[in-house]
Design a protein around this nucleic acid. Structure first.
Lengths: 216, 216
DNA sequence: TCAATGATTGACCAGTGGGACAATAATATG
DNA sequence: CATATTATTGTCCCACTGGTCAATCATTGA
């Protein structure tokens, strides 16, 4: 564990305060436990064990179980989000932006059953946890915004709005599929699926394609 | 409750044996509890209370908690499935079959947040319950088969397979959206979304070779 | 009518989980 | 060095849960 602390100190993202390190350690442990146990089986003791600490310490850093898992969801989302943001930085054209969002959502080292299982468990709790619901709204808002910025100029606002709904639903659905039948959908297939969807929607009946400069 | 029994006896579907009635009653109660409490909060006592019975009776009809919720999932799926089958019967052309599946999956009295919440909770348990996983596989297989029968003649087998994945993922994703943000997607919008997707996929480059799709 | 079978209940049990807390170690701070 | 703050542990408590069981109550069929 001491080495972990060393690593964390060297880590570019400043996690100077020891408490921050522990908190990160714990919410990551929480997520790992969630992956294999689900929300019903994810107990404080198991999380503590996973982090190599005692149950007491978990409650020392988080007011209660709920708060712990809320932070776990924030963490997981941040990881996913970073993947998208990183790709987004390199994107120059609107189309590249769209692809960045799509590909970022199926990052090879993230689009995996365990992560999906944990994510699903958290989503299932959203209706009963206002904090989780808020996090969800934020996530979706950012996704929407990213997609809209890519769609500007490629489709009318109304059509863009529909495409956003379609893309987000498709992505979620493909993740769900992965979770329910691991191996049934590869990263490549998922990406192709969403890209083809966008292509199909942009191709059909574009009402008066006003020629805004799309490349540049 | 006695009237329920009367109704059940009159019910065309033969539920003659009293035990069958109780079992149905209980798994429906289980589902209702799941809707508001989630898997973690769904206790045998609550299910019993919801059914107006004692906890003992629940375990009299179901070996254990797991079995109860497995049956609850079967029940819920059957309802959804019947909606599709009913519409499928009236469909004559392949296109009508497709629409039957799509519209059946967003039946007005079924496409509702509570149902979605319960469904989500069950899906989240799939990875840890082989029985649930099997039920899921059956559900998906039937869905796939229904869609393929509608797509026969409208697309090549390979393309049809891709469309099936897309449609199922889209449907799941739209349900998920409903669960996470109730009110954000109406039945009509969902149906239109999926139909437009199918239209878009059927319109673009019919004989898509088994190569890399060139999006853009 | 009466026994047999099934339905239903309530009491009970052992295990567990979340959380509070006091005690102790470690660290920082003046 | 002394003191204040923080980290960490183990213990304790209580509510609750899944599950068992013996004891009633109801139904039925001979």
């Amino acid at each position: 564990m001491s080495t972990w602390i060393r690593d964390a100190w060297i880590d570019p993202v400043k996690l100077t305060r020891l408490s921050d390190i522990r908190r990160k350690e714990l919410r990551q442990a929480a997520f790992v436990v969630l992956e294999r146990e689900g929300i019903a089986g994810a107990t404080l003791e198991k999380v503590a064990a996973q982090a190599g600490a005692s149950k007491g310490i978990v409650l020392h850093y988080f007011r209660n179980k709920q708060e712990l898992f809320e932070h776990a969801m924030r963490e997981a989302n941040a990881v996913l989000c970073n993947a998208v943001v990183a790709r987004l930085k390199r994107a120059r054209t609107p189309m590249e932006r769209l692809d960045a969002v799509i590909e970022g959502n199926f990052e090879e080292h993230l689009f995996l059953p365990p992560l999906c299982h944990a994510w699903l468990s958290l989503c299932a709790e959203v209706p009963r946890d206002e904090k989780l619901a808020r996090i969800q709204r934020v996530i979706h808002a950012r996704m929407r915004s990213n997609l809209l910025s890519g769609l500007r100029g490629l489709a009318s606002p109304e059509v863009a709005e529909e495409i956003v709904l379609g893309v987000t639903a498709l992505i979620d659905g493909l993740w769900l599929r992965l979770g329910l039948q691991p191996g049934s959908v590869s990263r490549e297939r998922a990406v192709r699926q969403v890209k083809d969807y966008v292509a199909g929607r942009l191709a059909t009946r574009q009402p008066a394609p006003v020629g805004l400069a799309s490349a540049g």
